[in-house]
Design a protein around this nucleic acid. Sequence first.
RNA 1: GGAGAAGUGACCGAGUGGUUGAAGGUGCACGCCUGGAAAGCGUGUGUGCGGUUUAUACCGUACCGCGGGUUCGAAUCCCGCCUUCUCCGCCA
Length: 438
Amino acid sequence: MLDIQLLRTDLNSTVEKLATRRYDFPMDRFNRLETERKKIQIQTEDLQAKRNAASKKIGQAKSKGEDAAEFFTEVENLGDKLKQSSTKLEQIQTELQKILLEVPNLPHDSVPIGHDEASNQEIRRWGNIHSFDFKIKDHVSIAEELQLVDFETAAKLSGARFCVMTDGLARLHRALAQFMLDTHVHSHGYTEAYTPYLVNHDSLRGTGQLPKFEEDLFAVNTGEKAADDSTHSTKFFLIPTAEVTLTNIVRDKIVASNSLPLKFVAHTPCFRSEAGSYGRDTRGFIRQHQFDKVELVHIVHPDYSYAALEELVGHAETILQKLELPYRVMTLCTGDMGFSAAKTYDIEVWLPAQNTYREISSCSNCESFQARRMQARYRNENGKPTLLHTLNGSGLAVGRTLVAVLENYQNSDGSVTIPEVLRPYMHGLDCLTVPDRQ
RNA sequence: GGAGAAGUGACCGAGUGGUUGAAGGUGCACGCCUGGAAAGCGUGUGUGCGGUUUAUACCGUACCGCGGGUUCGAAUCCCGCCUUCUCCGCCA
């Protein structure tokens, strides 16, 4: 959420900045509501003040045993007027809030301006792209030929965009997650967390998924029958990322400033409905309804959030370097950034079968955008509660890392070599081959 | 799921309709005292929103788990919900 003061005092330039994100701020409606709000709020609070004063006098008179009749007549007509006024005020504020909750974050000055991904800027590349002296396969063919994945069974169990992995592939998947967690906890100083996969409405509003992106989420009702269908309300949502739980840890809190920065890491499944992406990446592990991710979250003092962003990207890059997977780092342009981000770096890993780089991590500084929604604060030098800055990044998406390993480590005989750093997690397995199922 | 109890400020804790934003204590900050410290003494110590203001500041309003209701007036009364604790049941 943006600071409403910014919209009040500097509306034009704010609206211009939002336009670079392809967001059309409803200026006229906002202005109309604001004017109205000011009038009605002053009126309402004035009526409340009158009522409070009269009530106080009644109390005083009664405690002295005096007659309070004259004060009663004073308040007589106040009730209706006050009710009318406060109802109106509530309506206006609800509408303003609705507008405000749907406005995306302002891009940082260093973010390139552009309409779509074509304007993203490459900052650096790492690793040598391996050249193969045989005809390479994509990750689906590799895994299917090794009989380690079964999309048909997954479709029977659940539907499209799910998978069943078995044997060495399932273990490799687990190994990747463990390796990432261990690295972030032991080398990068993160606090490991285990958090719920089901969350309430408030948490999703805190990080910005709600109210605008409800269709991207899976909602869950409890098994009990609703006594009255019309009032039945969703109780939980499945998390689309652990960013939601890790960031909301500080919702409605004033964090002791000497405990900053907070750095959390968690490995969780993520659930996304992928509404609006029908037909894209239908093959394989790239875009699934359920996927695992190791998520990194920083909660920091506002002065240090951009330094923290560089650190965060570095931590994600370390994983790819240790796995010896080539990648590049991109700065997303204004038109390609997510709703809550002020600045985002995407890390894209090299996928030989697609002959291109594909997103494997997204690291964002949300500045105070989420903190304002969450009322997440610390006490500044003067003891005044001040909004924190929040950052999040994938470190990394496990399923996509698995894809990258399969494709980059494939051999001419169809087997896949296990990267060196994962061997300790593989129980002696150093190569994926067709399993011997007697 | 059943029965009972409870949710008040950074923390503990009083408060069952009227000068209560909230006694008292702890903590914290500042000052006095001290050679220094402790003890002691004194003063201060919530947040959101709005208005006036360059700002400091001042004024108004809301907030005692959350949401409604009753009333001129609600931390206090009524209704619904949530959470925690104890006992029982069920369960990985």
